[in-house]
Structures are given as C-alpha cells and as structure tokens.
Design a protein around this nucleic acid. Structure first.
Length: 228
DNA sequence: TCATTAAATTGTT
DNA sequence: AACAATTTAATGA
C-alpha cells in the first residue's frame, strides 16, 4: 500500500509539528497505510498491538464484547483521530475491538516508533498527555450524562465528542452519519435519536440532513441539556 | 437529461 | 419492532 495519504496525514497532525526534522524523517520513513472496507475489523481485543493508528478518513467504532456475546459501543473515532496509545503504552494487546463503520483509511505508526518518540521528545509526551486528558474529560462528560441526563442530552454529548476538534481535527462541521449509527454510538434507540436531533435542530444547534448532520454551534452542543 | 426502480434512511406508531 | 413516507443512487431509454 502506497502510504502517500498517510505521509500527508502525519505531516498535518498536531504532534508531527512539534518534532524536529530528524524525528519527523524517521516517522515518515516508518509510517504505513491501510485501507479497510466498511464492516471490517481494524483491531481486535486480545490481539497484539503493532501500531499506533490514525484515522485519515472514514469512521471507526470502538466497542467491547462481554463473555456472553453482548457488545457495548464505547465511542466513534472520527477523521483526524490517533488512537491506541493506551494499549501501546501499557500492554501488548488491544483491550477493545475496532470496526470500520465507513470505508476508512488508516495511518500506522509502528509501536517501536511510538515508544522511541516518547523517549526522545518531551513535546511529543506533552501531546500524548493532552490527548489522554481530553479523552478523560470526554468520558467523564459521557458518564455524567449517562447517569443523570435524559437520552436527548446523551445524544448531544456523543455528537459533541465526535466533533471535538482536539481529538478529531479532521472533522469539519458536517459528518456523514445516519441516525441509526448515532444510536449505536450513543447507546440510544433510533427513535430517541430522531427526537433528539429535531430538538437540537429546533434549538439551532445543528442541522439534520439525509444521512448526515451539520453542527452550527459547537459550544451550544457541548452544554446542551434537555429538560427531563 | 429524464423516468423508473431499488435500496437506504427517516418519521411515526 | 413494524410500517409508510421520503431521499438517494443506479439504470437505461
């Protein structure tokens, strides 16, 4: 696979801009690329972590499966995302499943390269800390909504997450996503998603399109609260 | 380009 | 979960 798109993607990533020329050269020399069709697995719980992965375009769903076969979706990974630093850092295997829910292109940074960057670049370390911290804040917001808020608010939090420009710099104002998919990502029935989206549209926060949504006011989406 | 049809998605119960 | 309405994509005249 010719990694041309991956090279450009790495160069445009926030963490690449904090590296010196020598460090960037090594990364560009070792980065790989992979295209996956919608519906295919991109990483599997229990299998070895070989790469730190970036989403060039498309969409990935992160989920876990219980021993009796039930699955729970944790989050979506939108364009611009880099993921897997957790498993890369602490273990030799993935602790979640990743599935492409759209045709997706991935950039692959070998595990060894990632660890080398951590050793030689304080600013890269800082990037990783910032990213982990941003995720933590997002997870807290989602857990809070899960326990305290009605479904409409949970949908809003889930969408605010997907449009997070720190975690997913590649996402513009518009994201191709059906209401069914939003349901899977936010743990809400499609009917409830439909209601929530219209509520959010009424509030002027986003525009509902056929098979897509467009965010008009991201700050408002983040702080949106439906009345119970 | 237009009309027809199938498939996907949405809105509602 | 089921159904009807709507939108899109594909096909061929």
């Amino acid at each position: 696979m010719k990694p041309k798109a991956a090279l450009e993607f790495v160069e445009s990533s926030a963490w690449a801009r904090v590296l010196n020329a020598e460090q960037l050269d090594r990364v560009l020399g070792e980065v790989g690329q992979r295209s996956v069709r919608r519906g295919t697995s991109v990483c599997h719980a229990g299998s070895p972590v070989l790469y730190w992965k970036g989403v060039i375009d498309g969409l990935i769903k992160m989920s876990v499966t219980s021993p009796d076969g039930r699955t729970c979706t944790l989050t979506g990974l939108a364009p611009g995302a880099w993921f897997g630093e957790g498993p890369v850092l602490r273990a030799a295997t993935w602790d979640f499943d990743g599935m492409a829910i759209h045709d997706t292109r991935l950039a692959l940074v070998p595990r060894a390269t990632f660890h080398w960057l951590l050793e030689v670049s304080p600013r890269f370390n800082r990037f990783v800390i910032d990213q982990l911290n941003e995720r933590l804040a997002q997870f807290l917001a989602v857990i809070e909504a899960e326990r305290l808020e009605p479904a409409e608010t949970r949908v809003a939090r889930c969408l605010a997450w997907l449009f997070n420009s720190v975690l997913y710099p590649g996402v513009g104002a518009r994201l191709a996503l059906t209401q069914e998919e939003i349901g899977y990502l936010s743990g809400v029935s499609r009917q409830r998603v439909n209601r929530a989206l219209h509520m959010l549209e009424q509030a002027g926060v986003l525009a509902v399109e056929y098979g897509a949504i467009q965010v008009l006011d991201l700050p408002a989406l983040k702080r949106f609260r439906a009345v119970r």
